[in-house]
């Protein structure tokens, strides 16, 4: 990036000048370099560590598959199962909760949709664990919900915190915007005229939804569903703060393997499996989606 070479003004474009004329790759270069160093690099290292013998801190050992075997033998698949189960439950609830709101924001609310967007986005700017801590205060024995019910009806609901439903609540709460916003984009991509045409051709309200709205808003639904699913799958704070030790999710296991157990290869194997699972889903998603159309509304 040494500026425009004045001498070669009339010469055929070569070297730096050729780069200048292709601003796309030039602009992509710094970010790509950064992500290579900060994203691709760590992933390769994690992969490398997963083949090292347990409890080693160096990468100069003979590769082994021992860690992969221990995932089965040490029943780590249980935490995988819990993560998959909780994430699936959360995503299904999120879809049911968000679809009517997204429909309203895309089609009914008009200018008010901007306000809803702002109100939903604002909590994202506050640390996730502060917001989850707020739920602890609500669900706690003698907390806000329990205290209010005792005062008003004399009923006590003390066993709410540190349960599986509390974790699901936390997941639904934290990842709601990640489901809602893609849904809004997806639904607003369905032209009103198509629905009117379907109605004109005799389709019922439900048939319009099934035949027109659902398939055409599918890109948004896919992105929202997969984004919230993957984030929930790898979540850590929800199960720790709201779940106590009721359920161990996979990220929990990974964290303790790295920190408490000081077993980097074990943690790496679990990470690799989680990454592979998420990565597979994302690749499948990206193959069917045109980002220009969704983000740029082209």
């Amino acid at each position: 990036m040494s500026g425009r070479p004045a001498a070669s003004e009339r010469a055929a474009p070569t070297g730096v000048r050729r780069w200048w004329r292709r601003p796309g790759p030039l602009c992509a270069f710094p970010v790509s370099l950064f992500l290579l160093a900060g994203f691709a690099g760590p992933l390769v290292i994690v992969l490398a560590y997963s083949f090292m013998p347990p409890r080693t801190f160096s990468l100069r050992q003979a590769p082994t598959l021992e860690n992969f075997a221990s995932v089965i033998s040490d029943s780590y698949y249980l935490s995988f199962f819990w993560s998959l189960f909780l994430a699936t439950t959360a995503v299904l609830i999120l879809f049911l909760v968000c679809y009517p709101i997204a429909y309203g924001m895309a089609k009914l609310f008009g200018r008010w949709a901007n306000l809803v967007t702002a109100l939903v986005a604002l909590p994202l700017l506050i640390s996730e664990n502060i917001r989850l801590f707020g739920w602890v205060l609500v669900l706690l024995k003698n907390g806000i919900l329990d205290g209010t019910l005792q005062q008003l009806f004399g009923v006590s609901v003390s066993g709410l915190l540190y349960t599986v439903p509390a974790i699901v609540l936390g997941l639904v709460y934290v990842y709601l915007p990640f489901m809602l916003f893609p849904l809004v984009i997806g639904i607003s991509m369905v032209p009103e005229s198509l629905k009117e045409a379907a109605a004109d051709l005799g389709a019922s309200r439900f048939e319009i939804f099934r035949e027109v709205e659902l398939p055409l808003s599918m890109p948004g639904i896919m992105i929202g569903g997969i984004l919230s699913f993957i984030l929930a799958l790898g979540s850590l704070a929800e199960s720790k703060i709201l779940g106590g030790q009721t359920v161990i999710m996979i990220a929990d296991d990974i964290e303790s393997a790295f920190t408490f157990a000081q077993n980097w290869p074990k943690g790496s194997v679990l990470s690799v499996l989680l990454i592979a699972l998420s990565g597979l889903i994302v690749v499948m998603l990206f193959r069917n989606i045109d980002l220009d159309r969704i983000i740029g509304r082209r």
Partner: peptide
């Protein structure tokens, strides 16, 4: 560009805790 778009967004689809640990190793 299409490839770049996907690669750039990839970190968003990553559990942050796992990313943090991977960075620690790195």
């Amino acid at each position: 560009r299409k490839l770049y778009q996907r690669l750039v967004l990839l970190p968003l689809f990553f559990p942050q805790a796992v990313l943090g640990l991977a960075l620690l190793l790195w």
